[in-house]
C-alpha cells in the first residue's frame, strides 16, 4: 500500500512519463483438468475470463501464464495460441495463472489523455466561477491527485486513500522535473522524459513520501 503510480502529462494531453511504484497484485494460480470450467474470450488483444467466477478468479481477469510460461497477447511466449492450446484435452492438466491485466503502454497513453479531457470538463461544469480542473478524485480503493503547473504540465499521483502528504509530493515531483528534465540539455520539451537522474530522484522521493505519510489522518 502507499503510492501506486505516477503519471506526467504534457499540455497537449500526451503521456510523457509513467512509473509504477507499488501496485498491489491480485494473481491466482490454479491447476485445471479437462474440460476447463471457465469461459474465456478475446478482449482487447488479451484472453480474459467472461464467465465462471471461482476461487478468486473473477470475470475480467486475464490469463497471465500457462504452466509457468508467460503470456503475451493471445499467445504464450513460446508461440502457442492460448485458446487452441486450452481446447486440446491432451494438454491437461494445466496450470493457469489469472490476474488483473496489467495496463499496456498504449492503454496508459489513452488513460492519460482521457484524464486530460476530464480535467477540462471538470472545470467547465463548475457551478462556481474560476474553477480549476480536477485536483483530487476519490474512489473506494485509491485517490488520484493531480497538480497542474502554470505551463500546463500535469503531474498525477495515484495513491492509497489513507496516504497523506501527496500535495507536497506533487510539488516535489515538479521540482525534480524542473531540475533533472528541464535543465537536461538533451531533453526536448513536451517529449517523453528519459533522464536517469529524473528516475533516480523520483524513486527516492516516492520512498520518502511513502514512509513519511504513512497512513496519517488522511491527506
Amino acid at each position: 500500500m502507499g503510492i501506486f503510480s505516477v503519471y506526467v502529462v504534457n499540455k497537449a494531453g500526451g503521456l510523457i512519463y509513467q512509473y509504477d511504484n507499488n501496485v498491489p497484485r491480485t494473481e491466482v494460480e490454479k491447476t485445471f483438468s479437462y474440460p476447463l470450467d471457465l469461459v474465456l474470450k478475446h478482449h482487447d488483444e488479451k484472453v480474459v475470463v467472461s464467465f465462471g467466477q471461482r476461487d478468486g478468479i473473477r470475470v475480467g481477469h486475464a490469463v497471465l501464464s500457462i504452466n509457468g510460461v508467460d503470456v503475451v497477447g493471445k499467445n504464450t511466449t513460446d508461440g502457442k495460441d492460448i485458446m487452441e492450446y486450452l481446447k486440446d484435452s491432451s494438454n491437461y492438466p494445466v496450470s493457469i495463472r489469472f490476474g488483473r491485466a496489467r495496463l499496456s503502454s498504449n492503454e496508459k497513453l489513452m488513460l492519460a489523455s482521457m484524464f486530460h479531457s476530464l480535467f477540462a470538463i471538470g472545470s467547465q461544469l463548475s457551478p462556481e466561477v474560476g474553477s480549476s480542473g480536477i485536483e483530487m478524485l476519490e474512489t473506494d480503493v485509491f485517490k488520484l491527485h493531480c497538480f497542474q503547473t502554470l505551463t500546463g504540465i500535469k503531474f498525477i499521483v495515484l495513491a492509497d486513500p489513507r496516504q497523506s502528504g501527496i500535495d507536497a509530493l506533487l510539488r516535489k515531483i515538479y521540482e525534480i522535473y524542473s531540475d533533472f528534465a528541464l535543465k537536461n540539455p538533451f531533453y526536448s520539451l513536451e517529449m517523453p522524459i528519459r533522464c536517469e537522474l529524473f528516475d533516480q530522484n523520483l524513486k527516492s522521493s516516492l520512498e520518502i513520501a511513502e514512509k513519511a505519510g504513512n497512513f496519517g489522518a488522511g491527506s
Binding site: 501506486f4 503510480s5 501496485v23 498491489p24 491480485t26 473473477r58 475480467g60 481477469h61 488483473r100 495496463l103 492503454e107 488513460l111 482521457m114 484524464f115 479531457s117 476530464l118 471538470g122 472545470s123 463548475s126 457551478p127 462556481e128 466561477v129 474560476g130 474553477s131 480549476s132 480542473g133 480536477i134 485536483e135 483530487m136 478524485l137 476519490e138 474512489t139 473506494d140 480503493v141 485509491f142 488520484l144 495515484l158
Partner: peptide, 25 residues
C-alpha cells in the same frame, strides 16, 4: 467516462467512484 477511467485505473478489482474536487467545488 470517469467510471470507465476509474475501472481501468484501479489497481485492484474493486472500484467505485465517490467524488472529485477542483479548486472551487
Amino acid at each position: 467516462s470517469i467510471r470507465s477511467f476509474v475501472s481501468k485505473m484501479s489497481p485492484v478489482d474493486k472500484e467505485g467512484f465517490l467524488s472529485f474536487q477542483t479548486s472551487k467545488y
